[in-house]
Simulated scan of single mutants.
Amino acid sequence: MLCCLCHCPHLDICLYQDYFGLPDETLYLTVYLMNAYMKAGKVRILSLQLLGIACLFVACKVEVSTCPEPNKLCFMTQDSFSWKELLRMERKILTRLKFELHYANPVHLLHWMAEVAHSTLEVQYLARYFLELSLMEVDCVCFEPAQLALAALHLAQRLFLQERSTKEMSQEGSCKLHTYSESELSAVYPYMAKAALRGPNSPLRATFLKYSRPQKLCISTSFDITASESLSRCLGSPIS
């Protein structure tokens, strides 16, 4: 059983992460911990919310110096469980995963590749938006973190840069940074494009709303997305 945010409508980790002002790294680590925990053993459907919040609690301890208090996390779930149950689940996670809590976080990789490529702020925010949207697509679980990060960056570059410039950059610089073929990256594009074109009609609107704010350059409502022929082509047919 693998976790996809769209399969847990009651468990809006994006909302909690945004509410507490936590860095993006905590969101991806939370989803990774949930997947790892469920891969290692069975989980009851009724325990998914508790598991998600406990994984977020653990991710905060790994990625940031301070983390929300257990009672505040419980309050966000309308006290669906007690702080004692939260701490008990935390111990279960650490025991089942044997304290193996680190992985190649795609956000770290995206930041690094964007810096090397000297990407503009608009491209970086759009790439981060595409990458976060991949969390809503269960099929994206099979892709490697670096593959997701690079695909998000390349897709963002295609939307903001002229096609000629994108090809030149791909030929001159990208081959030095990765070993993925264009077909391997193209396999990721449809999932990100589909989620982006859904916009406010997405099953989970938290990511769309998060990136519609001025602090995120209103990137999710940008004309480059809503009227993008490039994104439509990624789906294989025009979007009406």
Rank of each mutant, 00 (worst) to 15 (best):
L86R: 01
N71G: 14
L101Y: 01
F130D: 02
S80N: 10
F130R: 01
D79E: 11
H111Y: 13
E122D: 14
F57T: 10
L73S: 04
E122L: 04
V141L: 08
W83C: 15
A146F: 13
S47H: 13
D139H: 10
F75G: 11
E122A: 03
P68E: 02
P70Y: 00
A59F: 01
T95Q: 06
F99Q: 13
L131A: 05
A36T: 08
Y32G: 06
H108M: 09
K92M: 14
P68Y: 01
Y32R: 06
Y103F: 12
H111T: 13
A149T: 08
S47P: 15
L101E: 08
V62G: 08
E69D: 09
N35A: 07
C74V: 04
G52I: 01
S119P: 08
L101W: 04
L135V: 12
C67I: 15
Y129I: 12
G52V: 09
M76G: 13
A54W: 05
T95R: 04
T95D: 12
T120N: 00
L101I: 04
V58K: 03
I93C: 04
G41H: 02
C142I: 15
A117N: 15
E137H: 00
H111I: 13
F130T: 10
R88S: 11
W112N: 15
V62C: 09
L87P: 08
D139I: 11
L50D: 05
L94N: 01
I93W: 04
E122P: 09
W83N: 13
S80Q: 12
Q49P: 03
L73E: 05
L97K: 01
L97G: 07
L48D: 04
A104F: 06
I53N: 00
S134G: 10
Q78W: 08
E100P: 13
C55Q: 01
L135K: 03
L50R: 03
V58M: 08
V123Q: 03
L148R: 04
E144N: 09
D139P: 08
A151Q: 01
Y37A: 03
Q124D: 11
C74F: 02
Y103C: 13
Q147F: 08
L48C: 09
L73F: 07
L126W: 00
T66A: 11
Y125A: 10
V58H: 05
A146D: 14
M34P: 11
H108G: 10
C74M: 00
T120W: 00
H108Y: 12
F143K: 05
V138R: 09
L56Q: 06
C55N: 00
E144I: 13
M34E: 10
R91A: 14
